[in-house]
């Protein structure tokens, strides 16, 4: 049986932000508040990556945050899923050529799914997460 089957019921997400403009982060929080209310599907934002099934990653990775991102990923229990939220996390976006940018997330850690948009609407984020769950 597929190991990832366990994640299908109620996935807990952890939010990592590095060099983002904060907008994707707000839209992620927006997903949790009454209008969209993801918690009714068992999706919960948790405070520690050790409890999480999925990392929602925003922004393009900066030099200073790079070692922290690697550490956060290592601390996560297996099976690990990473969803890149927003244009910067997918491709580097408008900050791609900056001197302090290491690159988008998939250069550093394996990324499962990409949700493009600047910022993606909450509906798009929900859609992305649902697609990930369906593909497990």
């Amino acid at each position: 049986m597929n190991k990832l089957w366990a994640l299908k019921k109620s996935i807990w997400v952890y939010h990592v932000c590095s060099g983002s403009c904060n907008n994707c982060d707000i839209e992620i929080l927006d997903c949790l508040t009454p209008k969209f209310d993801l918690e009714r599907f068992g999706i919960l934002l948790v405070g520690s990556v050790r409890h999480a099934d999925v990392i929602l990653a925003t922004g393009s990775i900066t030099r200073k945050a790079l070692p922290r991102i690697k550490r956060v990923y290592e601390q996560m229990p297996k099976p690990k899923l990473v969803i890149a939220v927003g244009g910067c996390a997918c491709s580097g976006g408008i900050f791609k050529n900056g001197y302090n940018i290491v690159g988008p997330y998939d250069k550093i850690i394996p990324v499962t799914a990409y949700i493009p948009g600047c910022p993606p609407k909450p509906e798009a984020i929900i859609d992305g997460v649902v697609k990930v769950i369906n593909s497990l």
Partner: peptide
């Protein structure tokens, strides 16, 4: 942690 070199 969030420095993105926007001015440059």
């Amino acid at each position: 942690y969030n420095h993105r070199s926007i001015e440059k």
